[in-house]
Amino acid sequence: MNIQHRQWASLGLMAGLSCYLVLASANPAAAMHIAEGFLPVQWAVLWWIVSLPFLVVGVQSLARITSTYPELKLLLALVSAFTFVLSALKIPSVTGSCSHPTGTGLGAILFGPSVMTVLGGLVLLFQAVLLAHGGLTTLGANMFSMAIVGPFAAYFVYRLLLRTGRTRVAIFCASALANLLTYVTTSVQLALAFPAVSGGFTASFLKFAGIFAVTQIPLAITEGLLTVLVWNWLQSYAKQDLETLKLLRQES
C-alpha cells in the first residue's frame, strides 16, 4: 500500500470513529436545526417547495460527476463525513441553547453548491432520524438554510476572493460565511413563522439571531480555520483528485 492509500485509509478510519462517537452518544439536540413539528404546516410545506428544485439539480450534478469521474467517490464520501461530523457537534451557547458548525463550505468549494445540496440534505436526513437533530417535517427548512444558502454563499465568496490569488484566505472566508449565513437564514425562517407581537418580523429576527450570535461568530471562525487545515491536507495527499476537480470545473 503506497503512502497516499495509507493516508486515505487513516482518514477514513478517523471519520468512521468520529461518526461512531457521535452516534453512540446521541441525545435529542437543542441545536439550531429547527425541531420536528416546530414550524406551522404552511411554512414547513413552503420550505420543502423552495428546496426541491435545488435538490433535483443537485442530484443531476452528483450523478454526472460520479458517472464521469468515479475516482472522486472517495472524496465525496470524505466531504459528506466532514459535514456530518461537524454539524452533529453541539456547542453550548451562552443563552443555554446550543450552536454547531455546518461543514458545508469544503464540499461547496470542491464540488460546487448543487452537489452539497444533496450531500447536506442526506446529512440532515440521517441526523433527524438517528440523532434527533431537526426533523422530517422541517427538513425542507433546514435544508434550505444549511444545504442551499450556506453552500451557495461559500461557493460564490470563494470564487470571488480567489481572484486575489490568496486561496487559503478565500477558503477561510467562504467556510466561515457559510456557517454564519446558515444561522442568519434560520433566524429569518423562524421570524417569518413567529413574528413578535410587538415589533413584528424585525423584533423576532433580532431575538432569534441574538440567541446564537455570541457563540456562532467564534464558531464560524474556528470552522474556517479547520477547513483550511483540511485543504492543506488535500493539497499534500490528494493532488490527483484536486487536478481532476479542476478538469471538472473547466468542463462545466
Rank of each mutant, 00 (worst) to 15 (best):
G96D: 12
E223Y: 13
S114N: 03
A170N: 09
Y183N: 13
A29M: 07
P28A: 15
R6M: 06
L206Y: 08
H5R: 15
L130M: 12
T244L: 14
L86N: 08
V57F: 12
L136C: 02
I65M: 13
G12T: 03
L46H: 03
W231S: 07
P40R: 00
T95A: 15
L106P: 02
P28Y: 07
I211F: 12
A26R: 12
S99N: 14
A44F: 01
M1C: 00
I34F: 03
S175H: 05
A141K: 03
S61R: 15
I34M: 14
L62Y: 04
Y237L: 01
A35C: 02
F38Q: 13
M1R: 00
P113V: 04
Y155I: 03
V214R: 06
F144H: 07
L206C: 13
L17W: 01
P53N: 02
R249T: 03
K90I: 08
E36D: 13
L78K: 11
Q4G: 00
R6C: 01
T138A: 14
V157S: 09
V115I: 15
A193Q: 08
W43Q: 11
G112A: 11
L190W: 11
H100C: 04
T104K: 00
A9I: 07
F152T: 01
G140P: 06
A178T: 10
T117V: 15
L62N: 02
L180E: 06
L46M: 11
I217A: 11
I221Q: 03
K90W: 03
F172Y: 14
A29D: 05
H33C: 08
V228W: 06
G210P: 11
A141G: 07
A141C: 04
G134C: 07
L190I: 09
A191Q: 10
R163N: 08
A154R: 02
P113N: 04
M14F: 12
V149S: 05
G134F: 04
G107Y: 04
S204R: 14
T137V: 10
Y158M: 01
A178C: 14
G224K: 02
S236L: 09
P101V: 13
V94F: 12
A147P: 10
G37K: 03
L206H: 07
T83W: 02
A128E: 01
F111K: 08
L139W: 11
A170E: 04
V50T: 05
V59I: 15
A193W: 08
S198L: 12
L52K: 01
A238N: 10
L39E: 10
L225V: 15
T185H: 11
A24L: 03
T227C: 04
M116R: 08
L23Y: 04
A238H: 12
L229M: 11
A176W: 08
H100T: 11
Q127S: 04
A178G: 09
F152I: 01
F144N: 07
F156C: 02
Q42K: 14
Q216C: 06
P92H: 09
V50D: 05
L72N: 08
R64C: 07
E71M: 12
G120K: 02
A63N: 13
L229P: 00
V129D: 00
V115L: 11
V230I: 15
S236W: 01
L55T: 13
I217V: 15
I221E: 01
E223P: 06
W43R: 07
F156W: 15
T104E: 15
G12K: 02
K90D: 11
H100I: 09
F144Y: 14
F111G: 02
F212Y: 14
Q240L: 06
H133Q: 13
P70C: 05
T68C: 05
